[in-house]
Nucleic acid binder design. Structure first.
Lengths: 238, 238
DNA sequence: CGACATTGTCGAAATTTGTAAACCGAGGGG
DNA sequence: CCCCTCGGTTTACAAATTTCGACAATGTCG
């Protein structure tokens, strides 16, 4: 899944600084991709799939803060803002925009490295849920390897896309996934805001899993947000 | 939810600064415990079980850095160091010692708050999986995981927003929440002062929970302030 | 008791979702 | 090559949910 992706996406318009920083990070074991323009950053993010994003705020094209908010919609990993704008209120705004850290320029690359490491230390600890054996939730068993799903001992016949969607929801059981995220993670393209294919697939999935839209026990709708797979709310293990 | 534990443990020997900081954090919805001595910090941590630790480095008793490393052995949650020692190398050492963030004194409490929130945002996202205890108040049971509400054994059918609102009130049961706060926490936008959607939702919630506006037993109106969810054993004095 | 501010409730308009039916393109026989 | 099937997408419309303003009811203060 997350194979040929770089570790760090560095969004910075000052090329000399960007090169220096990238070089330092590379020397310390990270693979780095550099993007100079704000308006290309999202596309670049999609292409590179980095673990961390280091973001300058003053960018040609899109504003860095806007970028941060957009990124946050589809990216769970750490975002670090580093910028010349350094007032207290700027920091607060940056952090409220969804950034994990905010450092003022000029910044010693060593500090940037230490902070990046601190962020990764925190996120990598929890992200060990990628390619495991089976996922079991209530009467549901999802075999990732065999691409099969069993419900209360009965095998459920799902199409490829239905299976992908169920897997995705299961891997993030209990968390709401927006259509935007679902689009990105299953098809790698941007959600245009009016596509209904996800809804249709959810509808079919619900039928096959004996679930209903009005009183769902497994796949729940969070109005205005997205869908979520309920974790084992059915009594057994906690 | 974790109940009788505080949100934040503040370890700081300057009492005036500690009080000021603690007060500011309290005003913004966090419960805070303050510890002045480094050598008592570990014991205090065990007693309080906070979600976050804010740590000064210059302390009587144990050194802050040592404390940080020890703490890290038994504590997975966020540790934020804030100190007067501010060289780049100090930062790196602090972060390598296991801290999640490092800010230089003097620091605006607003910034400290924003950074604490950023840290909590990141850890709570992943920790919500195993701490899915239900909230129970009188005959009311709110299951955050399953997004379900039960009243006296009967399941109550709520919409997403109604559920969000009830959850919010329940998490702060006994505390008045202004429309401004409710707006910010449920929709992330500012309250314009004349929108009535909250009131409308409260109205519907009351009906579904068999509560009345004129003689409320659960959702009480605090005139000119906002709403609050009454814990069960309550008369009417506020 | 007014004058004013705040809250309760209703319903129309706008937004979002559920779902069935139409559509489309890629195989797979015949 | 044509026809058929199947998975997948798009369209269309109904249903559900939310927003937001109107207006009555209620509370506060002088």
């Amino acid at each position: 899944m997350t194979d040929n992706s770089v570790d760090i996406l560095l969004v910075e318009d000052d090329r000399r600084l960007a090169d220096l920083t990238a070089q330092y990070l590379s020397q310390n074991g990270f693979s780095v991709a550099v993007e100079f323009r704000g308006d290309r950053a999202m596309a670049r993010f999609n292409a590179e799939r980095p673990k961390v994003v280091l973001l300058d705020l003053m960018l040609p094209g899109t504003d860095g803060l806007t970028l941060c908010r957009e990124l946050r919609q589809i990216f769970d990993g750490p975002i670090l803002i580093f910028t010349a704008r350094d007032s207290d209120i700027d920091q607060v705004i940056g952090l409220e925009a969804g950034a994990d850290d905010y450092v003022a320029k000029p910044v010693d690359p060593m500090v940037l490295l230490a902070r990046t490491r601190a962020l990764l230390r925190r996120t990598e600890k929890t992200e060990s849920r990628d390619s495991i054996a089976d996922i079991c939730l209530g009467g549901l068993r999802i075999s990732d390897a065999a691409q099969e799903v069993w419900l209360d001992g009965e095998k459920v016949d799902l199409t490829t896309q239905e299976f992908e969607l169920l897997c995705l929801l299961a891997r993030h059981a209990g968390k709401v996934l927006s259509r935007k995220e679902i689009f990105r993670l299953t098809r790698g393209i941007e959600y245009d805001g009016l596509d209904r294919s996800i809804d249709g697939r959810i509808s079919k999935l619900r039928r096959k899993l004996n679930d209903s839209a009005t009183a769902p026990t497994r796949i729940k709708t969070v109005w205005g947000k997205g869908y979520l797979l309920a974790p084992d709310a059915w009594g057994d293990s906690v």
